[in-house]
Design a protein around this nucleic acid. Structure first.
Length: 385
DNA sequence: TCTGGGGTCCTAGGACCC
DNA sequence: TCTGGGGTCCTAGGACCC
């Protein structure tokens, strides 16, 4: 028998776009889109006026990272291609992503929350879970205090859901966006959660949702009413049982305040698809670069890796991965490059390549790692194949 | 006018060992 | 010198999330 818990989920409102609005307050109220690699930063004209790039005329492979609510009203959402967005909202302002600034504000808001309630679980740059079980005060005033602390530290707004578990809080933080607080009492499951679409459940994505729809299961209430045997038959033991549980609002997962990373990776989509033979020199250069940046990440974060993997995405969007577990931990860029090359040899390269990535898995903190320093040894010549 | 980059977790088959 | 089962590691792919 576990004690009744109180968990909050906090989600920053249109985080990247809102950080940009702190830098460029004159854009407040405008449709603003953050994304794209080569989208130029604003320039200043001879008259001292800032010139912002419009979405109109964008050409490239970038996608929307975040958009302001004004841009969302025009149909521009995260993940959408910038070309498509330009057709929907040609006058929207396009800003390049500034991850350094986002990480800075991410730290600020998380520290602010921790000053009110210390048990915080990181869920990426703009989201956290907060364990409020042992924090004094009623949920509404706690929610308000946390939001005020975040605003005081950053000038940004967020939305919060407070319920008995992570599953429900995650759903609830989205119910009154932006700048909302949603508190769900245990007896409100049927009235407030069951009417919602099944895909609102964190973990039910496009594929599962499609399968559910084929079974005439559209809402969380439909899911709760579905016979467990039906779910087990269509989704397997693990997923089927999980679906039956979450539909009843049951979720026992703890708030996890720290966990060791499992993998670190670097990948890049080329500006145009590259051919293994014709663009070999360019590919080789990019490949080396990815390996060196990955090594840099490992060293900076203090991990060594025993499994090096590669990822390729072809022109037709087919993705293949290969990996190789090594006898010793590695951390050096040249060793990573050698292992990654071994992986690459196992991939047929008869199609144009769109993306190349390198991954380090089986991580161990360097203090515990058993790696052999081969950096001093002569390095083999780099080849793409 | 197609679709980024960085992650986690799960499944499933084969190798290998006991 | 046949049959069986469990456990772990490795690899590849895929769903999903932010």
């Amino acid at each position: 028998m576990t004690a009744l818990r109180r968990i909050a989920h906090l989600d920053m409102d249109a985080f990247f776009a809102s950080v940009e609005l702190l830098t460029y307050p004159e854009l407040r109220g405008h449709a603003v889109v953050v994304g794209g690699r080569n989208a130029g930063a604003p320039t200043t004209s001879a008259e001292g006026e800032k010139q912002f790039l419009r979405l109109r005329g964008y050409a490239g492979r970038g996608v929307v990272t975040t958009s302001t609510y004004e841009a969302r009203a025009l149909g521009v959402f995260s993940g959408m291609g910038l070309m498509k967005s330009a057709a929907l909202a040609p006058e929207a302002i396009l800003l390049p992503a500034n991850f350094e600034a986002y990480r800075h504000f991410s730290r600020l808001f998380k520290e602010a929350v921790a000053s009110v309630a210390p048990r915080v679980e990181d869920r990426g740059i703009d989201e956290i879970y907060i364990d409020l079980t042992h924090v004094e005060g009623d949920s509404l005033s706690l929610g308000k205090r946390i939001k005020q602390a975040v605003f005081d530290a950053t000038g940004l707004s967020c939305s919060i859901g407070i319920t008995a578990n992570k599953l429900l809080s995650k759903i609830c933080s989205d119910l009154d966006k932006p700048d909302g607080i949603t508190i769900l009492e245990p007896d409100e499951l049927k009235t407030r959660i069951w009417p919602l679409a099944a895909k609102k459940i964190n973990g039910i994505g496009p594929k599962a949702n499609e399968k559910l729809a084929a079974l005439e299961i559209h809402t969380i209430g439909d899911l709760a009413a579905a016979p467990t045997e039906l779910l087990l038959a269509h989704f397997g033991r693990s997923t089927g049982a999980w679906m039956a549980q979450v539909a009843q609002g049951i979720d026992e997962r703890e708030v996890v305040t720290w966990s060791e990373p499992k993998s670190i990776s670097r990948e890049t989509t080329f500006e145009r698809d590259l051919h293994a033979k014709h663009d070999r020199a360019r590919l080789s250069e990019i490949f080396t670069n990815l390996c060196m940046r990955l090594a840099d990440d490992l060293q900076r974060k203090g991990y060594a890796s025993r499994t090096i993997g590669i990822k390729l995405k072809f022109a037709d969007f087919q993705v293949v991965t290969r990996d190789l577990t090594l006898p010793d931990d590695v951390i050096d860029g040249h060793q990573i490059r050698l292992a990654a090359t071994e992986c690459l040899k196992r991939v047929p390269l008869d199609q144009r390549i769109r993306l190349l990535g390198v991954r380090a898995g089986s991580l161990r903190p360097v203090q515990a790692a058993e790696y052999v320093d081969r950096a001093a040894q002569p390095t083999l010549p780099f080849e793409f194949e």
